[in-house]
């Protein structure tokens, strides 16, 4: 098996019928493979999110990141798009689910697809990964430090987000959660609240909280990067997807 991959921008059809931009990477040959939908963080469809997509492809998966800001800011640079969507109150939960659904279908239709698809998101994408896994039929979900899954945002918060803990009964896939002990959004008590609810419902989940790490410890281009937590977290992700997305 070679390590050659293909990566680039494609157009996919969202679950609501809209055509949106997405970044796709996958090996050019090799065995049948599972797919990973990468939900980008608040700063948008940026260089780091695309690096994550290519990283999954280099490990043998097909990965696809829909540009959640395609509709509101077509053609804008990622930072300008993120600022514009932030000013509009963020992406609605309905649109997010539709875009992940479209990405899931696109991955399943690729040559070499084994029919299994997981989802991963960081930051706001962590909450959205949980939301997607409670709204769609997926095979694995990874929530990296997503806030407002269990708790209401403070008054005056600019994004129109609401807790989604009430959807936990619909969780369709095993959930891996990776969190920082020093994070405030989500703080450890919110993570504990989510874990307790999943426990109560008998939902398959595996949570890890890293000491010495705060929010965004996977983000290699930010001072929040914590290599020890990130390296271990990546190993956890590979193992988790390996167990749940292999044919």
């Amino acid at each position: 098996m070679s390590d050659t991959m293909t990566a680039g921008t494609v157009t996919i059809t969202s679950g609501d019928g809209d055509e949106i931009e997405a970044y796709l990477a996958h090996p050019v040959d090799g065995p049948q493979r599972g797919g990973v939908v990468v939900i980008h963080h608040m700063p948008g469809y940026d260089r780091w999110s695309k690096e994550v997509v290519r990283r999954f492809a280099s490990d043998g998966w097909a990965a696809l990141c829909p540009n959640l800001y395609s509709r509101q800011a077509p053609g804008a640079s990622p930072d300008d798009a993120a600022a514009a969507v932030r000013a509009l109150g963020g992406v609605s939960d309905e649109q997010l689910v539709a875009d992940v659904e479209g990405a899931m279908r696109h991955l399943k239709a690729l040559p070499g697809a084994n029919g299994k698809v997981g989802v991963i998101g960081h930051c706001s994408g962590g909450r959205q990964a949980f939301l997607a896994a409670c709204s769609l039929s997926l095979d694995a979900a990874v929530d990296c430090y997503g806030a407002f899954v269990a708790k209401e945002p403070d008054a005056g918060f600019p994004l129109k987000v609401k807790p989604v803990l009430g959807l936990a009964g619909n969780l369709s896939a095993p959930l891996l959660g990776l969190f920082g002990a020093e994070d405030s959004f989500p703080a450890p008590d919110e993570v504990a609240q989510l874990a307790a609810e999943l426990e109560r419902l008998g939902k398959d989940h595996e949570f890890h909280t890293y000491e010495g790490a705060g929010h965004a410890f996977f983000a290699t281009d930010r001072p929040s990067y914590r290599p020890e937590a990130a390296v271990d977290g990546w190993e956890k992700i590979y193992g988790f997807f390996g167990r749940h997305l292999s044919a």
């Binding site: 700063p43 930051c123 403070d154 918060f157």
Partner: peptide, 9 residues
């Protein structure tokens, strides 16, 4: 999460 109160004018 990544955001806090926004002052807009």
């Amino acid at each position: 999460m990544c955001t806090y109160l926004t002052e807009k004018i």
